[in-house]
């Protein structure tokens, strides 16, 4: 296959990517910026596909195109739609002066210099033969990793420690959001058409999440993509004005939040007790353990992203245990 023929394709794709990035940052209208950013994410997903990085493309499709957009849109200031004056800080008006223009030029120049230097260094790096020691080591050890998708093998076995910390980052974020206290007000009940969308979209998203979780072992996919998809289901539910969006309350919620890190740690420490290295799975068990960890991680990721969208701790209006139980039963989805 001749790659030069993809040159036009690449050129246009990259042009769109840069154009969207630029446009999304050139405007002062928050809403416009966010929509452009969503478009940017969509195009990026295609670019990742083009570069044979389907794992990343999946993540980008779930996050860049979907969830980030939803998150950002929810944070767009509600008071002054489309106004460029988004800061309530009166001092800002001052700075619309010559000094600001100079500063802008300076920063632009600096960033251009950065781009140039980075490009210079990158070209140097690319001009030598690619370093193949590590990829080879990965493929040589793939059999022992318990999965056949090398990306999953890296994420959950070779560099599982990174992933453990990554889950800790997620947990931190959600705890931070919790500590901010309140949820944003819910949305109005949506019209019947939207409801119609939700009725088929949510089950399909749940199914897709399951699929991605499973497929991660031998093909692109995995806990994160699955979790994001699951969270997307919750986001849609929330948008229809439902107060129950599949998130449990109280203790159960905390368990789900902690599940990713918790199970990971539990596995790692158990192995340590059994005389193996921390997070060193026995090859025979690796596949099963990875699936276990990924399942827990998926739940945590979904809960985190969803809570991020909700913007805080779900109101716990538990009056008594019975009501609580009732709610739990109602909210299993």
């Amino acid at each position: 296959m001749n790659t030069t023929n993809l040159l036009v394709f690449d050129g246009l794709l990259l042009f769109s990517i840069v154009g969207l990035a630029w446009a999304s940052l050139a405007t002062t209208d928050e809403r416009r910026s966010v929509i452009l950013f969503m478009a940017f994410g969509l195009v990026l997903a295609v670019a990742w596909g083009r570069l044979l990085a389907p794992d990343v493309a999946l993540a980008e499709a779930a996050i860049g195109a979907g969830l980030s957009g939803a998150l950002l849109l929810a944070a767009v200031r509600k008071q002054s739609p489309g106004s460029s004056h988004t800061h309530a800080n009166p001092d800002r008006n001052y700075s619309e002066s010559g000094a600001k223009v100079v500063l802008q030029w300076l920063v632009t120049l600096l960033c251009a210099a950065l781009a140039g230097t980075l490009a210079w260094a990158l070209l140097h790096a690319l001009s030598s033969a690619p370093h193949d020691t590590l990829p080879r080591a990965i493929s040589d050890n793939l059999v022992a990793s318990g999965v056949s998708n090398p990306v999953t093998a890296v994420l959950l076995n070779f560099r599982a420690y990174d992933t453990l910390l990554e889950l800790a980052v997620l947990l931190t974020a959600v705890l931070g959001i919790f500590s901010l206290g309140q949820t944003t007000p819910g949305y109005q009940p949506a019209g019947p058409v939207f409801d119609g969308l939700v009725r088929w979209l949510v089950p399909v998203l749940i199914l897709t999440a399951g699929y991605l979780l499973w497929v991660g072992a031998h093909a692109p996919g995995g806990a994160f993509q699955a979790g994001a998809t699951l969270a997307a289901a919750g986001v849609v539910l929330r948008l229809t004005g439902r107060s129950r969006i599949g998130l449990p309350d109280g203790f159960v919620l905390r368990i789900i939040m902690a599940a990713g890190v918790g199970v990971f740690l539990l596995v790692g420490l158990t192995l340590l007790l059994l005389g193996r290295p921390f997070l060193g799975y026995p090859p025979a068990w690796a596949g099963a353990l990875i699936l276990l960890i990924e399942t827990a991680a998926m739940l945590s990721i979904a809960a985190t992203l969803l809570l991020a969208f909700v913007g805080g701790q779900p109101q716990s209006t538990a009056v008594n245990a019975a009501a609580n139980r009732q709610r739990e039963e109602n909210s299993r989805c």
Partner: peptide
Amino acid sequence: HYEMGGWSTGLGI
């Protein structure tokens, strides 16, 4: 030093 997961340095952390 401690090789996480028992993977050799470089492949693992």
